[in-house]
Design a binder for these strands. Structure first.
Lengths: 150, 150
DNA sequence: CAATGTTTAATTGTGCACAATTAAATTTTT
DNA sequence: AAAAATTTAATTGTGCACAATTAAACATTG
């Protein structure tokens, strides 16, 4: 079969290069991959790292609170947090005052990871090859877009 | 246990709000969700939609070519393309001139989806609430970042 | 030409994402 | 207080992502 090229102007809008969604999707995945070597050294996955960023800042947090901050639901978080519990990084227990809630706290091993993780952001920043101003501007734009989409 | 707040300046770099990776990750997922109602109407997933964007522009393509353009490997593409084949959207056959390659072509049902899909980009654009200039600028920035990360 | 190395998909196994459902605890309404 | 509605996690099932391995086809080298 001969190669067919379909470049009719009415289809311009469907070209991959004209989409915003694809670079977003691809950059997100490639950036996660850029974290991989550092996270692997800590035996962490990227979503687990995000949960730690929250807990290192404030703990304990309920599954609901983590879900609201990371925009993830219990279908994702419950098994993820169980794996983090198995590694003795976090505790999971029902809130005695509201048995519906599960409270996630840091265990010593999870708290100890922070010291090793705090080198990661600067090493990623190097890989990005962006100025601090560009970094902040892009982050602001994306946060605006995020609030538009949520 | 009392809530612990850890805001020591040496940990600022680990705060979720200071990361670029999180808004990228979250916007990517929320944007995919914004596509959901339109894709659901065509019985498509988002990665399948991306494959179609490529094939509508040019076909046939090998699995390798699709993987290079979307930055996906055969572990993702093989089962995805098999599902698309099952729905009679695409054909999958070994290249007779190089039996290592699998050539993906459009079938009539897959070609027909283009007409229904071409309304999607403008509807997404509305949801984004961005000017054309902002849209293009952000896309350019992300494409730059993508080439930096690949 | 035979041996070696490379390329290409497929396979296997793990961990997200997420829609949909379920079940228990709590809150609100009557 | 009893009934109804809401909230919260957990569960189930599907479909990516991706690392690592395998196997076949092809290319290169001696």
């Amino acid at each position: 079969m001969a190669t067919s090229l379909n470049s009719a102007p009415e289809n311009e809008v469907l070209k991959l290069d004209n989409q915003l969604c694809f670079p977003l999707y691809a950059v997100s995945r490639m950036l996660t991959k850029a974290y991989q070597p550092y996270l692997l050294a800590l035996d962490l996955t990227y979503p687990q790292y995000l949960v730690f960023l929250l807990l290192w800042e404030q703990e304990p947090l309920t599954v609901k609170e983590i879900g609201e901050k990371l925009l993830l639901d219990s279908g994702t978080l419950t098994p993820l947090l169980k794996r983090m519990e198995q590694k003795q990084w976090v505790s999971r227990q029902r809130d005695p005052h509201d048995e519906r809630s599960v409270v996630i706290g840091l265990l010593p091993a999870g708290r100890a990871l922070q010291a090793q993780a705090c080198q990661i952001p600067e090493q990623i920043l190097t890989k990005l090859n962006m100025s601090a101003a560009e970094f902040t501007a892009l982050r602001t734009q994306l946060n605006q877009l995020l609030s538009q989409l949520t």
